[in-house]
Write a protein that binds this DNA or RNA. Structure first.
Length: 439
RNA sequence: CGGGGCAUAGCGCAGCCUGGUAGCGCACCUGUUUUGGGAACAGGGGGUCGCAGGUUCAAAUCCUGCUGCCCCGACCA
C-alpha cells in the first residue's frame, strides 16, 4: 500500500477529549474518529487492526469447535418480553420502532435470539454439544461512555453460545472456551488472567472474567503472581476431550476483581512476595447459566429416554473493539504504538527518503514487490514529507519493522532496517533485509 | 443519575472581564531553498465564533433558554 494513495489522517497534537494513552494514540494514529459520545468510525488503519483481532478470535473459536454464523443487530422486542428481560434492561437498551409501530431494539446481547433460533431447529440430544458464535455490533446505551473504544456505547463483540444436555457437558463446553480464550489473548501478545466472577443467581464457579493488567484498567484486581507465569495450552490441544486438567492450574490460584475480592483469603492464601495488586481491563467474560433462558423460552431437546429437557447454556464474550485499545495500553512507548506482529495493521513500514530520486524509487519498488510476494503487508511512505516527520509518523502508527531507503544508504548499496520495539537500527543490503523480514 | 468543566478554521489554543465586524501555532495550497529523526523563507486558502431568542447604533464578547462534548463518582463487555 502506498501512503500517498492511502487514507491515514494522523495528528501531531492530541485531541482534548482523550485522557488515556490508548485513546490518544488511536486518535493520533488515525485509527478512529468519534462521531458521537461512545460512537466511533473505524478509519482504514484501525479497521485493519480490528480485522486482525477478529481473525485471531475466529481461528481460536473454530479450533475449539465453535461454529460461526451471524445474527442481526436489530431484534424484535417480543423475544425479550418472552425472556422477561425487556423491562429489566432499562435505559441501556436502545429501543426503536419500525414503520409499522412494532417495537424493536438494537441488541445489547443475543441470548434471546440464539435461544429462539436453537429451539426452532434442534430437537434431539444427538445434535449436542453445539456452540454457535458471531462477531457483531452491539449497543449498550451507557450513561457515561469513556476511554475511546474501551468503553463505547456501540461496540463489536464476539459472543458464543453453548448448548448441552446437562451440567457436566456444559462444564466441558465452558472449559473449551476457557482454553480458547487463554490462547486468543496470548496470540495478541496479552497476558490474561482468568478471574472468578460473580455468576449471579445461578451460583457455582463457572463464571470467569479474563483480565489483562494495565495501569489504566477500570477495576482493581488481586492475584497470585504464579498465575501470570503459567504456560498457555498449545495449538495442538485436543478440544474433543475433557480439558479440566488444563484449566485447573488457572483456577486454583487466587485471582479476583474488587467485587469478588476477599482480603483475608488473599493474605492467607498468597505468600507476600507473590501478591499482585493491580488494575485490570476486562477483555473477555465467560459464563454458564444453566437453563435460565432455555426454561422460560422452552428450548428443549429430547434426551436418550425420549423425554424433553431444557438445554444447559453458556455464553462467552470477547470485545474486539476493546481489545484494540487494551493491546495499545499494554504495548506502547513515548513515540506511539508498538503493535505485536499478530495484530499490526501492516508488518513493515517502508520509507522512501527521497521520492522522485530514481535510485530510491527503484529500490523501494523492488523491496515492496519482493516483501509483498513473500506475504508481508507493507505500507510504503512515498510522500515528499521530510525525513523526521516520516520517522515520527511511522513510529506513531507502530508497525513492527521499518525499512529506510535513502541516497546515503544506497551509496554503499544498503538500506536501514529498524525494529520498532527495541529501536535497534541495522544497515544491510536489500537482499539481506528481505531475508531478515521474511523469516 | 449526582458533582464539575468546556464549545472560536482539520487539530491545539488566544480573544470575552472592559461590546466596534476574528487572531496565533500546527496542518493544508503555491514557489524557492532544503532533505537520514516532527525544516527555513515568501505568498495563499479556509471560520454564519455550538444553536435559538433577547439587550444594543453595534454581540465571539452582555443576558436567557437549549444542545453537544469531556472529567470525577455510581453503573456496566
Amino acid at each position: 500500500m502506498r501512503l500517498s494513495r492511502y487514507f491515514l489522517p494522523t495528528l501531531k497534537e492530541t485531541p482534548r477529549e482523550a485522557e488515556i494513552v490508548s485513546h490518544r494514540l488511536m486518535l493520533r494514529a488515525g485509527m478512529i474518529r468519534q462521531e458521537a459520545a461512545g460512537i466511533y468510525a473505524w478509519l482504514p488503519l484501525g479497521k485493519r487492526v480490528l480485522d486482525k483481532i477478529c481473525q485471531i478470535v475466529r481461528e481460536e473459536q473454530n479450533r475449539a469447535g465453535a461454529i460461526e454464523f451471524l445474527m442481526p443487530t436489530l431484534q424484535p422486542a417480543d423475544l425479550w418480553i418472552e425472556s422477561g428481560r425487556y423491562d429489566d434492561y432499562g435505559q441501556e437498551m436502545l429501543r426503536v420502532e419500525d414503520r409499522h409501530g412494532r417495537p424493536m431494539l438494537y441488541g445489547p446481547t443475543n441470548e434471546e435470539m440464539i435461544t429462539s433460533i436453537f429451539r426452532s431447529s434442534v430437537r434431539s440430544y444427538k445434535d449436542l454439544p453445539l456452540n454457535l458464535y458471531h462477531i457483531q455490533w452491539k449497543m449498550r446505551d451507557e450513561v457515561r461512555p469513556r476511554f475511546g473504544t474501551m468503553r463505547s456505547r456501540e461496540f463489536l463483540m464476539k459472543d458464543a453460545y453453548s448448548f448441552d444436555i446437562d451440567k457436566d457437558a456444559a462444564r466441558r463446553a465452558y472449559y473449551r472456551m476457557f482454553v480458547a480464550y487463554l490462547r486468543t489473548f496470548e496470540r495478541m501478545g496479552l497476558k490474561s488472567v482468568p478471574m472468578q466472577a460473580d455468576s449471579g443467581p445461578i451460583g457455582g464457579d463457572l463464571s470467569h472474567e479474563f483480565i489483562i493488567l494495565a495501569d489504566t484498567g477500570e477495576s482493581a484486581v488481586f492475584c497470585d503472581k504464579a498465575l501470570l507465569d503459567l504456560p498457555v495450552p498449545g495449538e495442538d490441544t485436543d478440544f474433543t476431550g475433557d480439558l479440566a486438567d488444563l484449566v485447573a492450574p488457572f483456577t486454583s490460584g487466587y485471582a479476583a476483581t474488587e467485587e469478588m475480592h476477599k482480603e483475608e483469603t488473599f493474605l492467607a492464601q498468597v505468600p507476600e512476595e507473590r501478591r499482585v495488586s493491580a488494575r485490570g481491563i476486562e477483555v473477555g467474560h465467560i459464563f454458564y447459566f444453566g437453563t435460565k433462558y432455555s426454561a422460560p423460552m422452552n428450548a428443549v431437546v429430547a434426551g436418550p429416554d425420549g423425554q424433553d429437557v431444557p438445554v444447559h447454556m453458556g455464553s462467552y464474550g470477547i470485545g474486539p473493539t476493546r481489545l484494540a485499545p487494551a493491546i495499545i495500553e499494554a504495548s506502547h512507548d513515548e513515540n506511539g504504538i508498538i503493535w505485536p506482529e499478530s495484530v499490526a495493521p501492516f508488518h513493515i513500514g517502508l520509507i522512501n527518503m527521497r521520492p522522485g530520486d530514481e535510485a530510491c524509487d527503484a529500490a523501494v519498488a523492488d523491496l515492496e514487490a519482493k516483501l509483498e510476494a513473500a506475504g508481508r503487508e507493507v505500507l510504503v511512505d512515498d510522500t515528499d514529507t521530510r525525513g523526521g516527520a516520516k520517522f515520527a509518523q511511522m513510529d506513531l502508527i507502530g508497525l513492527p519493522k521499518q525499512v529506510i531507503v535513502g541516497p546515503k544508504g544506497l551509496a554503499s548499496g544498503e538500506v536501514e532496517v529498524k525494529d520498532r520495539k527495541t529501536g535497534e537500527r541495522t544497515m544491510m543490503t536489500p537482499e539481506a533485509a528481505i531475508n531478515a523480514l521474511t523469516d
